[in-house]
């Protein structure tokens, strides 16, 4: 178990390095620099480049990034909040916490509502309830997140004025309702569809027939025998769901003006604020990769067929 986790951790660090390298070299491939404005002279730009070490060879710059990241130093913002340490921007201004809070709640909602819905649909296969859920989930996975977000915004915040837009206070729970609904709705539908298929798949397995032959009640067959087996493939999809929720946060945070990490990342890319791009990419990738690791381990725990000590995976 420990060996497996260590191995996976190592691989994760590798992936993270690759992501950072890709980001860094892509970023530097962009013509232009964070210091070009309409008024700036070549001298000013050169001076600014020198100040932040952007005149050094790329490989040296990249090494410097890695070294300072190892010390927990993300550098200072070059443009958006010039001179402010990126660590302050991301963590002390509450962006990271806000995004994590939104993301985790959305994930929880997706899992807690999506999976049981899938079970209910599978259990009532062929009834009107199943039909209804199928229609809703099929449409649900065809609605882009930003469409839902904007529709919610117009309906509940602008027209009906039931819910506040987030630009107001961040303390009230109501503020989070719409962002969380728009973030999680797609994944509620997605997981529900997946669970239904996987559940029906499990119900057709030979061991379910065995259980029926033993005289196990239908309820117990679904809850004990089918559910756990059907969750195994569902768990493997939680990884992409997490990545998707982070992606979705870019749109949702932009739509609801949530001052979170996703919105900030998009802005930093558009503004070419190198240090902020690198730091946000690092934080978000680390998050996704770490969550994938957690999901993988959870997978191995649910499925006893996979032994953690051996190297097969």
């Amino acid at each position: 178990m420990l060996w497996y986790i260590l191995k996976r951790l190592l691989a994760s660090v590798g992936t993270l390095l690759v992501v950072l390298a890709i980001t860094f070299f892509l970023m530097n491939a962009v013509p232009g620099s964070p210091f070009i404005t309409e008024k700036s002279t070549p001298e000013q730009i050169a001076a600014a480049n020198a100040k932040y070490g952007l005149d050094k060879p790329l490989i040296v710059q990249f090494k410097n990034y890695l070294v300072s990241y190892c010390h927990g130093d993300f550098g200072v913002s070059l443009k958006m909040q010039e001179g402010t340490p990126v660590t302050d921007i991301l963590f002390h201004q509450g962006k990271f916490q806000l995004s994590i809070k939104l993301g985790l709640i959305a994930l929880l909602v997706a899992v807690i509502i999506g999976i049981p819905l899938g079970c209910i649909a599978a259990y009532n296969r062929g009834t009107w309830l199943d039909g209804f859920l199928r229609v809703v989930t099929t449409i649900g996975v065809a609605i882009p997140g930003f469409v839902l977000a904007t529709l919610l915004l117009v309906t509940f915040a602008v027209k009906l004025q039931w819910l506040p837009t987030i630009s107001g206070s961040l303390d009230s729970f109501n503020v989070y309702v719409m962002p969380i609904v728009s973030l999680s709705f797609y994944y509620v539908c997605y997981l529900s569809k997946l669970t239904r298929t996987s559940m029906l798949d499990a119900i057709n397995q030979d061991y379910i027939r065995t259980a029926r032959a033993k005289g196990v009640t239908t309820k117990s067959i679904v809850i004990k025998h089918a559910l756990r087996n059907s969750l195994i493939p569902v768990i493997t999809y939680i990884g992409p769901v997490i990545a998707g929720i982070i992606t979705g946060s870019f749109v949702v945070e932009s739509t609801f003006s949530v001052p979170g990490l996703g919105k900030y990342f998009v802005q930093s890319v558009l503004a070419r604020d190198y240090t902020v791009i690198m730091a946000t990419t690092f934080v978000l990738s680390a998050l996704v990769i770490f969550m994938n690791l957690v999901v993988d381990i959870a997978y191995k725990i649910v499925d006893p067929r996979i032994t953690l000590s051996s190297r097969e995976d």
């Binding site: 259980a211 032959a213 756990r228």
Partner: peptide, 22 residues
């Protein structure tokens, strides 16, 4: 259901898939 497994029980062809793996 009460009858199954109690008075009549059944074994199947493929023992590899007939037991619940988890």
């Amino acid at each position: 259901r009460q009858f199954r497994g109690n008075k009549v029980s059944m074994i199947f062809q493929n023992p590899m898939t007939c037991l619940n793996p988890v």
